[in-house]
């Protein structure tokens, strides 16, 4: 079997296990290419039926406007339910405090909103688009990853995961994070998007944008980024290889606006996908620490 067929079949089987094993699952949708791929896989797993779960978006308020627009269009097309948890609400409720300074980002704050949204929706399983090839802490992640009441990931206490049997048994209050595309690489996702003709937000393709240089990376100039007189805004042709918040996702200079060219550019790139994530660069164990705190 071709590798994309194999990865697709595995992901569909994992999604169906979620449907079969849990009472109230949810699909975490960020508007990025990985979660858009998950939505396509969910269609393949459950159509002509409805999805046995809603889409859940944790909105930091610092999203690319293109992503939000895309999200709403996609949800309307699908005819599925969308639940949005707002980081702004967590800030207003005093549960988190907005970071200050030049590198301020809401990335870390969204964990609190995520955990609150899980609690409120009583979700016992949350499907996410994380992949093991992204980052070294994620390389050790299970496909069914049990989190305690505080959303914590404990790498030393992971359940052994054998064959294609996924143990989703949990106690009340716990939940499981499920990663159906664990075994996909960045290129696999792109090749699948191409093969399936999946539509993506326009930020993934080359476009003109105002950017500023921060820590050696091009960041989108926006009202969410704390800028001062030292920051010089330049107009450049860029695209985004990974899409999170505007404050923590860096752009790459590129004139590639066709998927074939983007795939070629990525396969020749000397920098990893998460090299464009400021949130991973805080320390050597940035992801490991965030995951232990309830992040993905």
């Amino acid at each position: 079997m071709d590798y994309l067929d194999q990865l697709e079949a595995e992901a569909i089987a994992i999604l169906r296990e979620v449907a079969g094993q849990f009472e109230k699952p949810a699909l975490l949708f960020s508007g990025g290419k990985d979660s858009i791929t998950l939505v396509k896989l969910a269609e393949k797993a459950f159509r002509p039926g409805k999805f046995p779960f809603p889409l859940v978006h944790i909105d930091t308020g610092h999203n690319f406007p293109e992503t939000i627009e895309f999200r709403d269009k996609l949800v309307a097309q699908l005819g599925e339910k969308l639940i949005v948890g707002y980081v702004q609400d967590s800030i207003d409720q005093g549960k988190v405090i907005e970071q200050t300074g030049k590198n301020a980002s809401r990335n870390a704050l969204q964990t609190v909103t995520l955990l609150d949204t899980i609690l409120e929706g009583k979700f016992d399983a949350c499907i996410g688009g994380a992949r093991r090839d992204e980052e070294k802490a994620r390389a050790k992640e299970r496909i069914f990853s049990v989190r305690d009441e505080f959303g914590q990931w404990d790498p030393k206490r992971q359940r052994p995961e054998l064959w294609n049997i996924y143990n989703g048994k949990i106690h009340k209050g716990e939940n499981v994070r499920v990663f159906p595309i664990s075994n996909w690489t960045e290129l696999d996702v792109w090749n699948y998007i191409k093969r399936e003709n999946i539509e993506l937000p326009s930020v993934y393709f080359a476009h003109e944008r105002d950017v500023i240089m921060r820590n050696g990376q091009w960041m989108a100039a926006s009202e969410y980024l704390n800028m001062d007189e030292e920051d010089i805004i330049i107009r450049k042709k860029v695209r985004f290889r990974t899409v999170g918040d505007m404050t923590c996702t860096a752009a790459v200079e590129s004139d590639k606006d066709q998927i074939d060219d983007i795939i070629l550019e990525i396969s020749q790139s000397k920098i990893s996908e998460r090299g464009a994530r400021m949130d991973d660069k805080v320390s050597e164990a940035a992801m490991e620490d965030r995951k232990k705190g309830g992040y993905f």
Partner: peptide, 14 residues
Amino acid sequence: DGLKAEREQGITID
């Protein structure tokens, strides 16, 4: 080597 815990101990735990 993935995790901080492993680097500290110089072993692979998982």
